[in-house]
Design a binder for these strands. Structure first.
Lengths: 157, 157
DNA sequence: AATGAAATGAGAGCGCG
DNA sequence: CGCGCTCTCATTTCATT
């Protein structure tokens, strides 16, 4: 799966699909000066190459009882590979953990957690952090405003 | 836009669409024991209610020359409302900033930044942080492993 | 090799009972 | 809410550059 070289058509198509994946290929074609079948072939290639990983619905958390977003920095005691993997698996398995990165620097993990209430978050920390003896400490940053969310990857033209 | 009460059908539909928004309504219908038109009406309602905000293509950053993910914690000097708004606008306008939350706690903002190289990140910090006199300090956490990414909102059944 | 025009087929979007 | 129709859009074919 090598990085395929994308021309300006591919880039333009990606930019559009990241905003609205339902844009008709005919409309995309008009925007990028290509026929609908040409657009279709390019999209197919981008999917096969793994550049387009999925097409997903974006859900508003507040409307499905997940109004609270909390960013969590987690610091481990031991940085042994098997310990790290265990933590990864635990975070991966927790549905409340929307995103998780393993990072360098002053923390080991950064999580984005979605819950309904602080009580739920407290319960989650008990289950996820206090239950694991290898977690030295964690720091919670409560989101007051979701200034920008999304998965859009900048595409330079 | 009040929180609409979602029944188990709506929840099941949302769970499916968050994994693959292209799933045919007929297939969704089979999965949740509903006819395709019923599924369609529910999806439409969910869109009108704002529960489904968009349908977007998920792009693999590494394959479009954005292989470096960095989490940034930003701390402001002044927490005056107009200063905060100015920072929000600046982060919002920067395409490299994929996500941005305004948070309580030891930091004021948490950003998810996507760049190609460390040199690019350095240039971005110059433009975004050092140029703004109101930014007291920032802390960069470089992602070594994207354990979990996505926007999936947990839906309890 | 990739494109565009035209034909085909699948799926979404309707009104109906 | 389900059934069946219509119509848009995705997909394939094929000739062309």
């Amino acid at each position: 799966m090598p990085a395929p070289d994308l021309d300006r058509f591919d880039r333009a198509i990606l930019a559009i699909l990241q905003r609205d994946a339902r844009t008709p290929q005919r409309v995309i074609g008009e925007a990028v000066a290509l026929s609908a079948p040409a657009v279709q072939r390019r999209i197919r290639r981008l999917e096969e190459a793994g550049v387009i990983r999925a097409n997903v619905a974006v859900v508003e958390p507040a409307l499905v009882d997940r109004g609270l977003t909390i960013i969590v920095e987690v610091e481990l005691d031991s940085e042994r590979a098997d310990r790290i993997d265990a933590a990864k698996r635990a975070f991966l398995a927790a549905p409340e953990v929307q995103q998780c990165w393993y990072v360098t620097g002053e923390a080991d993990f950064v999580l984005v957690v979605l819950v309904a209430t602080m009580a739920d978050y407290e319960a989650l920390t008990r289950r996820l952090f206090f239950a694991d003896a290898n977690i030295r400490k964690f720091r919670s940053l409560v989101a007051m405003d979701r200034v920008k969310t999304g998965l859009a990857v900048p595409i330079d033209p």
